[in-house]
Simulated scan of single mutants.
Amino acid sequence: MNRWIAGLISWMTATYSATAFAAVVERPFDYPVGAQTHRGYFLYDDTVRTTRPLLIVVPNWLGATAANRKQAGEIAGSDYVVFVADMYGKDRLPADAGAAGKAVGALYADRPLLRERIRAAQAAALGEVRRAGLPADPGRVAAIGFCFGGATVLELARTGADIAAVVSFHGNLSLPGTPDNAPIRTRILALHGDADPYVPAEQVDAFQAEMREAKADWQLVRFGGAVHSFTDPDARQPGQAMYDAKVARRAFAMMRDFLAEAFGG
Score class of each variant (00 low, 15 high):
109 A>I: 07
160 G>Y: 06
95 A>E: 09
136 A>N: 05
128 E>C: 06
130 R>D: 10
67 A>D: 03
143 A>R: 10
147 C>V: 12
68 N>I: 04
140 R>Q: 05
162 D>Y: 07
133 G>N: 10
163 I>S: 00
110 D>Q: 05
154 L>D: 03
104 V>C: 11
98 G>E: 14
93 L>C: 07
106 A>E: 10
153 V>P: 11
144 I>V: 14
154 L>T: 02
132 A>G: 01
78 S>F: 06
158 R>V: 02
64 A>R: 01
111 R>P: 01
128 E>Y: 03
118 I>Q: 06
80 Y>I: 12
74 E>F: 13
164 A>P: 00
110 D>C: 02
84 V>E: 08
62 L>Y: 08
125 A>H: 08
117 R>S: 04
129 V>T: 11
140 R>T: 04
87 M>C: 08
116 E>S: 05
63 G>Y: 04
140 R>F: 00
150 G>Q: 14
156 L>F: 00
98 G>D: 15
130 R>T: 13
92 R>Y: 09
85 A>S: 09
150 G>C: 14
67 A>Q: 04
148 F>H: 11
139 G>K: 02
94 P>N: 14
116 E>L: 05
91 D>L: 03
123 A>T: 15
70 K>W: 12
57 V>D: 14
145 G>C: 10
141 V>E: 05
98 G>L: 15
63 G>H: 07
161 A>E: 05
139 G>R: 03
130 R>H: 05
81 V>T: 09
154 L>P: 02
85 A>H: 01
118 I>Y: 07
157 A>P: 00
92 R>T: 13
121 A>N: 13
62 L>D: 09
155 E>R: 03
103 A>Q: 15
92 R>D: 12
59 P>H: 12
81 V>H: 06
125 A>P: 12
88 Y>W: 11
59 P>A: 03
95 A>S: 14
126 L>E: 13
76 A>C: 11
153 V>N: 10
74 E>Y: 11
78 S>H: 13
105 G>H: 04
121 A>K: 10
123 A>D: 15
123 A>Q: 15
104 V>G: 08
155 E>H: 00
110 D>N: 12
157 A>I: 00
106 A>Q: 12
162 D>C: 00
75 I>T: 08
90 K>G: 04
109 A>H: 05
150 G>T: 13
71 Q>N: 05
137 D>I: 04
154 L>K: 06
164 A>Q: 01
125 A>K: 08
135 P>A: 08
75 I>G: 06
61 W>M: 10
70 K>N: 09
86 D>S: 01
111 R>I: 02
74 E>M: 12
95 A>G: 12
57 V>M: 13
124 A>L: 02
59 P>F: 05
121 A>T: 11
102 K>M: 13
108 Y>P: 09
131 R>E: 11
67 A>Y: 00
77 G>L: 07
155 E>Y: 03
161 A>K: 01
112 P>N: 06
68 N>V: 00
110 D>H: 06
142 A>L: 00
153 V>F: 06
147 C>S: 15
86 D>F: 05
58 V>D: 09
59 P>V: 04
108 Y>T: 08
150 G>K: 12
117 R>T: 06
116 E>K: 04
103 A>M: 15
102 K>W: 12
91 D>Y: 03
147 C>G: 14
148 F>I: 05
141 V>Y: 07
162 D>A: 01
144 I>Y: 09
123 A>W: 07
150 G>S: 10
154 L>S: 01
129 V>H: 09
